[in-house]
Structure formats: C-alpha cells, structure tokens
C-alpha cells in the first residue's frame, strides 16, 4: 500500500455564520486505493471535525454521499483517488440549496417524488387469501433497471433543465414513475399521468441525457422520459380522436 498526498479543496458553508460559501484546503495522506469519501473521513477524524457531509454505506447502495467532485456529480464512495489528480475539488451537489458544507437540502426532491406516487397501486385489490400477484421474468425485465435508482439525486445535479426550471419534476422521480407504470401488477398510470404529463413533468425535459450519464446505478432516466413522452403523445391523440375511450 502506497501513500499519496492529496490536496482536497472542499466547499465550506455554514449559513448561520458565513455570508457566502468558501473553499478550504486540506492536505490529506491517502492510501492509493481510497475513494474521495475515505479522504473526507480522514479530514473529519483527524484534521477538522466541523466538516459536514452525508454518507452511510460506503458501497454505492444508500445514495447519500453524492457530491460534485471536480465539477462532476459523483458518489464520493465510488470516486477512486487513482482516477483523479493530486488536487481534488469537492462541492455539494449542484442545483440544490446548501444546508451546510457538503450537505444539501432535499425537501424539494422528496415532495416531487411523493407527487408521482412511486409505489404499487394495484389494478384491483384482492384479499391475501387469494395469493400473491404473479409476474413472469419477461414482465419483470421490462421495469427492473428502473428499480435500481437509489435516490442519490446526482441526475438532478447534472440536469441543465432542472437548473433552469426548478419546478421540473426531474429525472429520478420521473424514472420511478415509469418503473411503476411498467409494472404488470400496477394500475396507477392514469393517476401518475396527472403529474407526469403536465408541463412540469416530462415536457420540461429537452433530452440532454446528462442524467443517464452520471447515474451510478446505470438507470436510464432520459430513456424513461422519452418513452413516457411517446406514450403521453399517443394518449393525447387518443383522448381527442376517440373521446368515447375516456372514462
């Protein structure tokens, strides 16, 4: 194991004391196989206990350690130091208000997530005695990729549309709506369409595709949104050309 001296340039901000965010430099003795999160933990444990950031699992599952690393939205537990130079700039996720240091305020995302009803809304309720809802592997495959979202919000930090239009429901929430729409056990699409097919839903997306590029779980939110645009366009025409289909 070889040691490597890394200079971390970390954005610090305490809204109660600071007028505006500032950068603070830390010189960190790092192991070659460390990730940026390890370096931050070293800072917290040895150099500056006041540094605030979120993390939990250290294995790209919990989705809480997302930050801008050299300007790219990245999970800091997945950002290996060997892929970076000797100077690394660490900032909180872009497009979100800063709570403190590298911690961002997620309330807006949480309320949007809730609005798209990202849970199963069964077609018809059946008593437990009638047994489970069955699903074939083919039906599972249709939506499985979208279940891998860990709500890390890297896609929101990458999305230029979300930066311009804060009301945009955004990639992760829309991809999760799509995940349930595609589920053979689900019957909630019409309810979700009220949000998804609105102006603030899929139609604010201009298909830049940055969301899918930064996703640490290889979910493809951009693809999900395009598929929903096609389905919603078909809906739009059917609602007008065949009004008797509307309930």
């Amino acid at each position: 194991m070889s040691l490597r001296q890394i200079e971390l340039e970390v954005l610090r901000y305490d809204p109660e004391q600071d007028d505006e965010p500032r950068f603070q430099k830390y010189s960190v003795p790092c192991q070659e196989e460390w990730v940026v999160l390890d370096a931050l933990n070293y800072v917290k444990d040895n150099l500056d206990g006041s540094l605030s950031y979120r993390w939990s699992c250290h294995m790209a599952v919990c989705g809480s350690c997302g930050m801008m690393i050299d300007g790219e939205p990245t999970l800091s537990c997945k950002a290996f130091l060997r892929d970076y130079g000797s100077k690394i700039r660490v900032e909180p996720l872009a497009n979100f208000p800063i709570e403190r240091d590298l911690v961002v305020v997620l309330d807006d995302f949480m309320s949007k997530l809730k609005r798209v009803k990202p849970y199963l809304i069964p077609k018809q309720h059946k008593p437990i005695a009638d047994g489970e809802y069955r699903q074939t592997p083919r039906q599972l495959k249709l939506y499985k990729q979208y279940t891998l979202c860990i709500n890390c919000t890297l896609c929101y930090a990458a999305c230029p549309q979300f930066a311009l239009i804060p009301d945009f429901i955004g990639p992760a929430a829309l991809a999760l709506a799509h995940r349930y729409n595609l589920d053979s056990r689900d019957g909630g699409r019409a309810e979700r369409q009220e949000e998804v097919a609105s102006h603030e839903g899929i139609w604010e997306c201009s298909f830049v595709g940055a969301c899918s590029e930064v996703c640490p779980k290889s979910v493809d939110p951009a693809g999900a949104i395009q598929q929903m645009k096609i389905a919603s366009t078909v809906d739009w025409y059917l609602e007008r050309l065949m009004p008797w289909r509307n309930k």
Partner: peptide, 15 residues
C-alpha cells in the same frame, strides 16, 4: 395539474 398540450408539437418533432 393540467396535462400539457405539448404532444402536438412533440409528436411532429418525434415523427
């Protein structure tokens, strides 16, 4: 929330 009328132009755009 009202559904958007963007499908008119988006449909033509996609086609």
């Amino acid at each position: 929330m009202a559904k958007s009328n963007k499908p008119i132009v988006w449909g033509l755009f996609a086609a």
